[in-house]
């Protein structure tokens, strides 16, 4: 069994499941947003948009999507990094950057969703 410190999940299966599950959430969120925008999009006002986003279920759904995005991106970029970045220093630096960015996005995302 291959082990690696910078491994997100416990196992390959966990990674794989997270990747697929998060993809489903992202897809579902995309579908909801596209439909809502198609229905309301032609004369969309800020109030309307805020109203929609302010509903509890949309807030929860968005939070879930932000977390899913972070997890999905992390596993994906970690995979890309371990494929193509062969120097461990470079890889650690890159993944560190990715980690900080993703963390910032999550915090920022939460503050946007729950902060108004």
């Amino acid at each position: 069994m291959v082990t690696n410190v910078l491994n997100y999940g416990r196992s390959g299966v966990a990674d794989w499941v997270v990747q697929r599950f998060s993809a489903l959430i992202l897809a579902a969120y995309t579908v909801v947003m596209v439909i809502w925008l198609a229905v309301n999009g032609s004369e969309l006002t800020f109030a309307q948009w805020q109203g929609f986003m302010g509903q509890t279920w949309v807030r929860i759904f968005t939070l879930l999507t932000v977390l899913a995005l972070a997890g999905h991106a992390w596993i994906g970029l970690w995979t890309v990094a371990t494929d193509y970045l062969k120097k461990s220093g470079v890889r650690v630096a890159f993944l560190g950057g990715v980690l900080i960015s993703l963390f910032s996005y999550v915090v920022w995302g939460i503050s946007i969703i729950w902060g108004f």
């Binding site: 291959v2 690696n4 196992s11």
Partner: peptide, 12 residues
């Protein structure tokens, strides 16, 4: 199976 369940062996 236990020996293959990591992110590299199979899932690459």
């Amino acid at each position: 199976l236990a020996d293959l369940d990591d992110p590299f062996s199979v899932f690459r």
